[in-house]
Design a protein around this nucleic acid. Structure first.
Length: 681
RNA sequence: GCUGAUGUAGCUCAGUGGUAGAGCACUCCCUUGGUAAGGGAGAGGUCAUGGGUUCAAGCCCCAUCAUCAGCUCCA
């Protein structure tokens, strides 16, 4: 049914009538020409659904629905459209200006087209893949046998400026599918051919965008013209596998970023600098926390005294907390006979991730990649009654895994690391309480170490793939429902991901959100239906019969190394007092105050505080500067005034002036803040 | 593992084929200074490693190792 007029519902509640086929630009012009000039794109939804509950679609849901959006038919749900798209039905319409996050994605996508325009003008032999906007900018995947050099990138950026200066209109065109395919096939544009075949159906028209002589298969939307891409930068180049499969040829992915104005672009680079200043690899060096030594091997961490001090604090807390929560601490060997890894199955399915075997006395030994078999051997060492369950074994276990070169990343991806690993053996009836306990513990870890935000994912099996999972249907159902009800009991929102479970059982992953909003996978609670069977684990039930226990793996820091890395970045190296490796720095004003400073040091240390005294022949200003750069929580300055009154002048981190107080008062305060794990100073 | 870039003093970096440099840090001397750098002198390098080209290599070529940005994979 076609209408001759359409009703446009505006956000202020007013409804305006326009001829059918009017555009968002027409609507904006009817309000004010200045508005029309400022608007970038428009968001519409069918008018009748205006009253519907607010959309809560997750980003993931949006991504999965992209298939239909390359065709000519207008989607029914909310969508973002060009200002020049004719509107043919009653809609509620929102005009998006440059301050809208959606508009930013659009200009970045348009910038990708501008970049593609420049690339094809300079390097016509290049074949285009796809060029989406990302959270930080955009990229375009292209195929060209010769690599682009940094010089090429500079040329591309210059040419982009020319394309922008031409202020070419982005025009959407529709073309019969077969015609578009024929054109791309003729130019051997294998990637475009693939995308059209993948995202459109036979007989449809496909959506193309033209600016000048450049045409790209694209669903849009775009800014009105290339002139709107005012501030951009070609950033870097990297390899990317065609369709994400490492068996496919590698494409060149050219990254860039774009904003509506120079100021935002500059701010973006300032932000990148801030991220770099927080980088745990940078801070690890500056604060002398850890190192990685080429001569020793990649992905192996050397914990320097200050880093080791922080690690000790983390580990002490973790062990104490395990004991408080009914875990037993255990230790298991680092190398064990290959025989054991055959029983556990690692020799088969995990071998590629393990260090190669070493031979000793006619037996092969392998470095452990996981702690579970060791814990299982302890469990099996004596018969268990249902009265013994749940058995909870915890270990800060060092594991070694082979990681491919090129995958290592500071503390966050290494070859040797320490898991705060625990295995819980329990009866099916105990599962839910145990899972609740794990989640509660995980929350405690996050809040104790200063994280407030996290996301939870429940990974379940893919029923269509039943044969690839170990364990009985009943066990899977019980485990999944226990995980669900445990999360519900704790009132934690979560996302279910079918098919993401390991073959041996479902799991809950907790991803922590750091102070910059980045997501880190750390804590995990996983069921295992495989190992209890492989090791023939059992307990004697109330009925006198033998039963197989349920086994749960759980790691909360995940890896001590990774957690530490995230912690460094979260705090930007300015650790709260209880974690700081050096808590108090002492600055005597001149050498004649050294003796008093020594006394103060002794008293602080007697109170259990970690102290450093700078006795160098330096001016106090220099010492204060050095300690400030080390991000030490408290700097105590002492001169004549202080030594005569048994006091100290306290300069908390980040403050520029000190306050004098009796030494005893400072000790009381610092001790209190340490025991309460306060983040304040 | 793959693509590209990088590897020079403890750190940050300059050095385009002809005698290895700077700032900071370090050591010593002068200075004894009240809240983010006082002054001077000295010491410190097998220019990642191994080959090659050249009269001559930090610089050019090849290989290896490591790091960085990504891809893939993962705690």
């Amino acid at each position: 049914m076609t209408q001759s007029t359409i009703a446009i519902h505006l956000p202020d509640g007013s409804i305006k009538t326009f001829p059918a086929g009017s555009t968002a630009h027409d609507v904006a012009m009817s309000i004010s020409p200045r508005l029309a000039a400022a608007v970038v794109v428009a968001r519409i939804k069918p008018a009748r659904t205006t009253q519907a509950s607010p959309a809560t679609t997750s980003p993931d849901a949006e991504a999965s629905s992209e298939d239909s959006m390359y065709s000519a038919s207008e989607p029914a749900a909310e969508s973002v459209i060009d200002l020049s798209t004719p509107i043919t039905e009653d809609v509620s319409l929102e005009l998006l200006k440059e301050n809208d996050p959606e508009a930013l994605r659009v200009v970045r996508h348009s910038a990708a087209h501008v970049m593609a325009t420049a690339i094809l003008e300079l390097f016509p032999e290049t074949k285009l893949g796809h060029g989406p906007a990302t959270d930080a900018g955009f990229f375009y995947d292209v195929y060209r046998p010769t690599p682009f050099t940094p010089d090429d990138l500079a040329k591309i950026e210059e040419r982009m400026a020319e394309v922008v200066a031409r202020d070419q209109k982005f025009v959407r065109e529709f073309e019969p599918r077969e015609q578009a395919l024929a054109g791309y096939r003729q130019h051997h544009d294998f990637m475009k051919v693939h995308f059209i075949e993948r995202f459109t159906r036979n007989g449809e028209d496909v959506s193309l965008y033209r600016n000048g002589s450049f045409v790209d298969f694209c669903r849009g939307p775009h800014v009105p013209s290339t002139g709107r891409v005012k501030a951009f930068k070609v950033m870097s180049i990297a390899g990317a596998y065609w369709l994400g499969d490492e068996n496919n040829p590698q494409l060149q992915r050219i990254y860039g970023t774009a904003f509506f104005n120079r100021k935002d672009l500059d701010a973006h680079f300032v932000h990148l600098e801030e991220i770099k200043a927080r980088d745990h690899r940078v801070l690890g060096k500056q604060l002398d926390l850890f190192s990685i030594q080429e001569v020793a091997g990649a992905g192996l961490i050397f914990w320097h005294p200050r880093g080791a001090m922080i690690r000790k604090t983390m580990e002490d807390w973790m062990r104490d907390e395990c004991l408080r929560r009914g875990y037993s601490l255990v230790y298991t060997p680092h190398v064990m006979r290959t025989e054991l890894w055959k029983i556990s199955g690692h020799e088969g399915f995990y071998s590629q991730n393990m260090y190669t075997p070493m031979e000793l006395d006619d037996a092969d030994y392998r470095l452990k990649p996981m702690n579970c078999p060791g814990h299982i051997l302890i469990y099996k060492n004596s018969p268990k009654s249902y009265r013994d369950l749940p058995v909870r074994y915890a270990e800060l276990g060092n594991v070694y895994r082979y990681e491919r070169s090129g995958t290592m990343h500071g503390l966050l991806r290494v070859r040797g690391f320490t898991q705060d690993d625990a295995h819980i053996f329990c009866t099916p009836a105990q599962i839910e309480d145990e899972v609740v306990g794990c989640i509660d513990f995980a929350q405690s870890v996050l809040t104790t170490f200063g994280f407030t935000d996290f996301k939870v994912e429940l990974s379940t099996w893919d029923p269509k793939d039943r044969k690839n999972y170990a364990g009985s249907d009943e066990n899977w159902d019980l485990a999944v429902s226990s995980l669900r009800s445990a999360l519900d009991r704790k009132g934690i929102p979560y996302r279910t991901i079918p098919g993401e479970a390991a073959f041996y059982g479902p799991k809950i992953d907790i991803k922590l959100v750091d102070v910059l909003g980045r997501l880190w996978q750390l804590s995990t609670v996983q069921f295992d239906f495989n190992l209890p069977a492989r090791f023939d684990l059992e307990y004697v039930g109330e009925d006198g019969a033998r039963h197989q226990p349920v086994m749960v793996h759980r790691a909360l820091f995940g890896s001590v190394e990774r957690f530490f890395g995230v912690l460094i970045e979260h705090y930007a190296g300015a650790f709260p007092l209880w974690l700081a490796p050096v808590q108090v720095a002492l600055v005597p004003i001149s050498e004649k105050h050294l003796a008093y400073a020594e006394q103060v040091k002794a008293q602080l240390e007697a109170a259990g505080l970690r102290v450093e005294l700078d006795s160098r022949n330096e001016k106090m200003q220099g010492k204060i500067r050095d300690f400030s750069l080390q991000k030490i929580p408290y700097i105590l300055v002492m001169g004549d005034k202080e030594s005569e009154s048994a006091s100290v002048n306290v300069r908390p981190r980040g403050k520029s002036q000190g306050e004098s107080m009796p030494l005893a008062d400072f000790i009381a305060k610092a001790s209190e803040l340490t025991t309460t794990k306060s983040t304040d100073l």
